[in-house]
Structure formats: C-alpha cells, structure tokens
Design a binder for these strands. Structure first.
Lengths: 236, 236
DNA sequence: AAGTATAATTGTACCGGTACAATTATACAA
DNA sequence: TTGTATAATTGTACCGGTACAATTATACTT
C-alpha cells in the first residue's frame, strides 16, 4: 500500500475511533508531516484523498476540519467497489437467480464495447440489506476478462473476487440513473406491485486501462434505498 | 485563474473542439509540460482535475486518454454549480413562485446549522429545460450569508449571483436522494398525477469554510430527468 | 467596547528533481 | 509465426523547497 493511502486510511480511522464531528479540527499540516515522517506533498496527497471522499475539508489559513454528513442509512453512490464496503455493520445477502455464459444482445455489447459473438457471464441477483429486499440486479461480465464465475463467488462479492483472485483492478465507472415504474418481473422480485416507483441505475465499470468489463442494471426498492453523494468543487 | 485550472480548461476545450472520443490519446506529459511551459507537477494537477471531472484517464506506462460517456441528455450530478453549466445548449428557464424572507422550521434550521429565529430566504421555483417541466424546487438561503435576493436574480442563476456579486465561494455539498410518490402540490406543478414516481434530492451547500448556506429540496419530473455520475476510484 | 492596523499561522500553488512500476515496442530465438 | 527476453516509453510516488493568500490572533487606537 502506498504511503499516502496508508496515511489517509489512518487519519480516517482516527476520525472514526475518536468519533470526531463536522467542524472538528485535525492537527496542522506540519504536525502531520512530522507525525508520519513524510514530506509535505505526501501528506497533502493523503488529505486530498480524504477530501475527495468527503471526510475532511481544508481551509487555508485556518486548518484541516472534519466533514461529516449526519444521515445514517444513506448509501454512498461512489462505491465503485460495489456496496459491500459501504454499509456500516449492516448485512448484505443475495439470492442468486442465475449465473451463466451467454451472448450479449446489441445494447449490452455496445455498452461493453464488445461484439455480439463474444461471450459474457450473465448474473442475476436479488440483494438484501439486513434481510430487507434492496435491489434486483442483472449484470454482464466480459468473459475474456472474467473467465470464471460460480454461484459461491456471486453470492458474495464479485468485485472482491475479480480484484483479488484475478488481480484485475477497477479504474472508473459511468452510472446512468433514472426513475420509472416497475414491470411485472421486477415487482415480483422486489415484493412490490407493478407500476410502483423505482430507481434504475445502469453502470459500466471499466478497468484502469479503460476497457469496460461489467455492465449492470440495478432496479432499487424505492422504500429501502436512499443515497448520498458528497460533492466537492466547483472545480474551476 | 490558477495555472493548473487554466491548463485544464484549455485541454478540455481542445478535446471538445477536436471532438475526441473515448480512448483517444492526448500528448504525453513531457510535451504538455513544454507546450504550456510549466513544471511537471502543474500539468499533473491539471490532469488530475480533468480525471476527477471524468474527462480523461491516465495509464502509467501508456499515456493520457480521453474518457467520455456517450449518452447525451443525461445531466451530471456533480454540478455543485447548479444546472446551468451542465446542459450543453439546452435552455433553462424558471417560474418563480416565491421569494420571501421567513423563519426556518426545525428541520431546515438543523440542516443549515442555524437557529429557528434566524432569517432565511425562501425560494420556490418550477424549472424547465427546453420548455419541458424539469423539477420543482424549494430552497432556503441563510440570510446572514445571502443578504439580498429578488425575482430577477432567482429567475436566472442564484449561484452565479452569490459567487459573483457577493464574492462568496461554494465549497462542497451533501446530496441526499430517494425515490417516492408525488403529493398533490408537486404533481400539479410538474403536470403529473398524484402518486406518480419521483426522485427527490435534498442538498446542503456549504461555503469553503464549511458553513451551510443553502438547503434545497428538489422534486424531479421522472420522465424528463436522468442523471449520470462518473466515478473514479477505488481510491484505496 | 469596538474598530483597525499588524503580525503570526496555515494551507495551496508552483518549481525541479530522483526513483520506479506498468506498459509498449523491439530484437531475438524457437 | 509465436513466444520471450530486453529496452524504451510514460505516468506516479515521493522528496524538499520558495512564495503567497486567506485566516486568525494580537496589539493598538479611538
């Protein structure tokens, strides 16, 4: 692990352990420098990371302060990691409906930047948070990148597996969101009624080299899902 | 304007003018350095900014590449700026329903970190994109920070005014999203029916010093609004 | 008390450098 | 052709430094 990531993780941990609140002041840059025995630029990078994660904000001439939103139960939309990392203590489980190798239709192929003759893994799941239906998901993985999946892997975290066992690293993702009404199938899986409201999110996950490897469509249970986005900026 | 912001803006402009596509390669770091006659770290900062904005991605050993999502009509959720900056060519208009000074209720006061006896500006609008109803908005501004508003300002961009005339700079924002059903009032303003689906977003905008100055509740027309979020990471 | 100039504090912009890891290109062998 | 070692390319981590702008504290006035 890189120095600046390590330091960021430690500072984050410090904030959590001491239960610091919005506005609480952290040690000044110079102290952090000597405390972690690294140069200014390394500390700066660590802090910048925390700033992007919405954990601190910095004010020149004044100091480094804790930033914290105060609504538990809201899930962060930035978990490129999937949800697992994202729910403090709550338990995530899955019903695996399907894991199979197929050919993508044109839309899926286009989103994954592959050909309709290429193989993809199709994964279908219903996911639960603390036993409550959370979402219904259909995902497609490029088989050339993710050569093997099974029900055990899929029941747990696919992302952990992909990054761990396969040594593949996720780079960035594009998420497209819109609100609509449930169809029959979705309603059934979510335990709701047809035409009930829902949030649909399509996400294309890319590797660090820019190649898409996962296209997923998630339909959320509107009563059991709420999200938080902590934005910085204006950037310029 | 800072050097690295200026350079980032120019590179972004270059990408747009030459209509570069996903995966197109930009000049290498060293060339950018000499091209803009700045040090490596300045270019790096500019590129990092563009990376966060989802405009490029960098691959070590390989180069700097254009990143582009290919769905026009999706609005980015990161416009801390408000929407204005965010719609390429489309026209944003507003019906101003109310601009007045009042006292906040407890929820609003809590979200703004003020007392219920403090004054706030209350702004109520229906907003249109290219003539189509887009959202219904109720916003509350801390009067101590935004001492004056009128219908003209509110009909245009409040954020432009606040940052321009008032010289106040926006630091960061927390957005809370959830899906639900429209009530009578909302339905009327949006030209929909009661109980139709909707996305509701509450946002708390903070100044750079961490003080909240705007709390807004926006109810979106589910057929006329769709959003894109371009995420980077995993950060660590 | 209340304002006002002055100084100390503190993060940010920017420079220039070394070392290195990941990628890609090249040369060579099987 | 196909694979494999080797070299060149290229971005990232990290160091250490100077200058400066925004904030906050201090001392001084009125």
């Amino acid at each position: 692990m890189l120095k600046y990531q390590q330091i960021a993780a430690e500072i984050e941990q410090y904030i959590n352990q001491h239960d610091l609140k919005q506005g609480d002041k952290l040690p000044v840059l110079e102290q952090l420098m000597s405390q972690y025995a690294v140069s200014k630029s390394t500390i700066t990078k660590a802090l910048e990371l925390l700033e992007r994660k919405g954990i601190i904000f910095q004010l020149r001439g004044s100091g480094i302060f804790v930033r914290r939103h105060n609504r538990p139960g809201y899930m962060s939309l930035f978990s490129t990691q999937g949800f697992k990392s994202n729910l403090g203590g709550r338990i995530l489980t899955s019903d695996v409906l399907d894991v199979s190798v197929t050919k993508p239709d044109e839309t899926i192929a286009a989103n994954l930047g592959i050909d309709v003759t290429d193989d993809v893994y199709r994964v279908e799941r219903v996911r639960y948070v603390d036993g409550e239906v959370f979402c219904y998901e259909k995902s497609y993985y490029v088989k050339a990148i993710v050569p093997y999946l099974n029900r055990e892997i899929v029941a747990d975290s696919i992302f952990d597996y992909v990054q761990g066992a396969l040594g593949v690293t996720i780079g960035f993702s594009d998420m497209y969101m819109q609100v609509g009404r449930l169809d029959e199938t979705e309603a059934q899986y979510l335990g709701l009624k047809k035409d009930d409201p829902t949030l649909r999110i399509e996400t294309i996950f890319h590797l660090t080299n820019g190649k898409p490897f996962d296209y997923s469509r998630i339909t959320y249970h509107y009563e059991h899902s709420q999200f938080v986005v902590q934005a910085n900026g204006p950037y310029m």
